[in-house]
Simulated scan of single mutants.
Amino acid sequence: MSRDSTASLSAGLGRRDFLAAASVALSGGLAGCTGVFAAEGNQVNIAGSSTVFPVTEAIASAFSEKNPTINLSLSKTGTGGGFGNFFCAGRTDINNASRSIADAEIDQCDDSGVTPLEFPVATDALTVVVNPDADWVDCLTVEQLHEIWRADGAERWSDINESWPDQEFELYGAATTSGTFDYFNEAILGEEANHTGDYYATERDRSIVQGVRGSQNAIGYFGFAYYSENPDRIKAVSIDNGNGCVEPSIETAKTGEYKPLSRPLFIYVAKESLTQPAVRDFVRFYMDQATTDLVSDVGYVPITETQRDENLEKLESAIEEVTE
């Protein structure tokens, strides 16, 4: 049942279709292109995490309204796919990331002459979802999630709780190139277990919504933003980390109550791309907007003004170094 998928941005944007009118060029074909994708003139190229994508998408729309001559190309490739295939190969200027860059990816970037600069842009409440008709489950412990998602783990709902249906799980989750996959692995499975391969794996988070909505026995996970735009189609599961059940929300992620699935979200900027005015202008704009309702409106916690100021100080220092 395991399948990996790379998302085309133009498909299924739903309420975000306004981007076309805002003159943001959406590209779903980065994986099939050759040549250098680093910024040239008024072009900024962005790939990476599908979780961070809604934030970058919203900020890109606002930026394009003010800067219609700058072309922004966005693609969902997964965090790891973005780093490995595009950003660290010098083919994109920015990588959306739902986890920190790995040591091997830093080495790859270094080999290509790319210097990654990390900027936190939001906090996510990674969300476990089930079908609305799955009335037997409203909360799961971390241990139960571990059993559901580990290789050679539980296969049926009744394996978790004997009073639950004697039906096989239908599992939907992030592809292995995704930072969401990596974070879920670390937070729920740990070092002692491997993630099951018997699941529908995709970078198309809306496909997870559709899959879970279509089966009473389904369970999946993804960033909170994709739940927040579909609360009537799927049901979010509370998580018990040992101190009682806590619902995923902007509020519980902000306070730190939602553990262990609250996580920071990032963009990584190639320092070398900051020689281009278009990239500099967009990243400055991004940092300013990351404290606003543009972030909370898509379902994440904005960064604080202190974090913004730290980001801007780091950015301006890098710009000075590459333009002096």
Rank of each mutant, 00 (worst) to 15 (best):
residue 16 R to H: 04
residue 20 A to Q: 10
residue 22 A to C: 02
residue 23 S to F: 01
residue 25 A to M: 01
residue 26 L to K: 03
residue 26 L to V: 09
residue 27 S to E: 05
residue 28 G to P: 01
residue 31 A to K: 12
residue 32 G to F: 07
residue 34 T to N: 10
residue 36 V to Y: 06
residue 36 V to T: 07
residue 38 A to W: 00
residue 41 G to N: 13
residue 46 I to H: 00
residue 48 G to I: 11
residue 48 G to N: 14
residue 49 S to A: 14
residue 53 F to H: 14
residue 53 F to I: 10
residue 54 P to V: 07
residue 54 P to H: 12
residue 54 P to A: 11
residue 55 V to G: 09
residue 55 V to A: 04
residue 59 I to K: 14
residue 61 S to I: 02
residue 63 F to C: 02
residue 64 S to H: 13
residue 64 S to I: 07
residue 73 S to G: 03
residue 77 T to P: 04
residue 78 G to L: 08
residue 82 G to I: 05
residue 82 G to T: 04
residue 83 F to E: 06
residue 84 G to A: 12
residue 85 N to S: 14
residue 86 F to I: 01
residue 87 F to I: 07
residue 88 C to Q: 03
residue 92 T to G: 04
residue 93 D to V: 08
residue 96 N to R: 13
residue 97 A to S: 15
residue 100 S to Y: 03
residue 100 S to R: 12
residue 101 I to F: 02
residue 101 I to P: 00
residue 103 D to C: 01
residue 103 D to V: 08
residue 104 A to T: 14
residue 105 E to V: 03
residue 105 E to L: 03
residue 108 Q to D: 06
residue 109 C to K: 12
residue 111 D to C: 01
residue 112 S to I: 01
residue 113 G to E: 09
residue 115 T to A: 03
residue 116 P to H: 04
residue 118 E to Y: 00
residue 120 P to Q: 04
residue 121 V to D: 06
residue 121 V to T: 09
residue 124 D to W: 06
residue 127 T to Q: 14
residue 128 V to W: 00
residue 134 A to V: 11
residue 135 D to F: 06
residue 135 D to K: 15
residue 137 V to A: 15
residue 137 V to R: 04
residue 138 D to C: 05
residue 139 C to W: 13
residue 141 T to V: 14
residue 141 T to N: 10
residue 142 V to S: 05
residue 142 V to N: 13
residue 143 E to P: 03
residue 143 E to G: 12
residue 144 Q to G: 12
residue 144 Q to A: 15
residue 144 Q to D: 12
